[in-house]
Amino acid sequence: MSGTVRFEGQNYPLNDGETVLDTLLRNGQPIAFSCRSGLCQSCLLQAVDGELPEAAQTGLKPTYRAQGLFLACQCRPAGTLCVRTPENAGIDTKAEIVELSRLNATVLKVRLRPSQTFSCRPGQYLTLLAPGPIARSYSIANDPEMEREIELHVRLLPAGKMSHWLEHQAVPGTQVTVRGPAGSCFYTGDDNRQWPIVLAGTGTGLAPLYGILQDALSNNHRGPIQILHGALRESDLYLQSELTQLAAEHDNLTYSTCVLQSADGAPDASGDIQERVLTVLKSMANDVRLYLCGAPEMVNPLKTRAFLAGVASRNIHADPFLPSVASGN
């Protein structure tokens, strides 16, 4: 038997196999969502009455769980669940867009000034909420607590909703809402900062890695650090001069790029970032910490391959940038 969801005074019975998100969307309710896989946290709702299944809160931080916040896309209640949107749960922060500039032809640098301190670690991700509502996850490329601004790198997709809004509607001064942070891709230091670090990402997967890198360097990490940026074409790379400069200033840092297609369009096998990372891992001590971000087609298989190659599961931190899923199951 499927349950019922109660939202804004109306009861909506769940059809067989449906989640709370499916049911509310089917009934035309404007609930924000994106990955539909229980990862991005765009569809967070708050339960005010009724029984929440465990699966609806898997992976949420304890403070969220305690407030009854849950993932609508993972929630299949047995009974009646009374829910509301979480605007008043104190998890949202207003922010003002202060900069929109290009990092390359298709990557936008977005800088936001939060109205109050946004506590997070560089490399975690937040949910950016724009009118619509459109909710999308973006990774944090700097240290917002130090800089008082949040830096995001957004790859502009031709038919992307958030892409379109940021490119054509948003201007410096526009107000947005940020929610979060979430995720475990961040630097953790203790007294011994000797372990090797490998940071590998494709496209805007560089955003969290750049944040983690700066965090590690400002914590005086002493072990070797390798950052690898993968892209389809040379023109998809960005921050090359900044990273080259950082590598020149830090003896323990190596920066390399993996480009799949040379300028004339010919495939270049040496640009396969998965093979490159596996080769790099061979030369590193086995307490290496590996961070993988960007295209799921790279992140997910590489995570398994690195694990099989001997990297401890607790030392692999990965954020696959799952795309939004429009409709259906």
């Binding site: 997910n300 995570k303 398994t304 694990f307 099989l308 001997g310 599961s313 692999i316």
Partner: peptide
């Protein structure tokens, strides 16, 4: 034990296909 055991399972073609490794964690 878990890493050692799971690595053996994933590396063994006779059983690895039972494990959906899209979410290793």
């Amino acid at each position: 034990a878990v890493d050692i055991f799971y690595r053996k399972m994933l590396a063994d073609d006779r059983v690895s296909h039972f494990f959906d490794n899209t979410d290793m964690d």
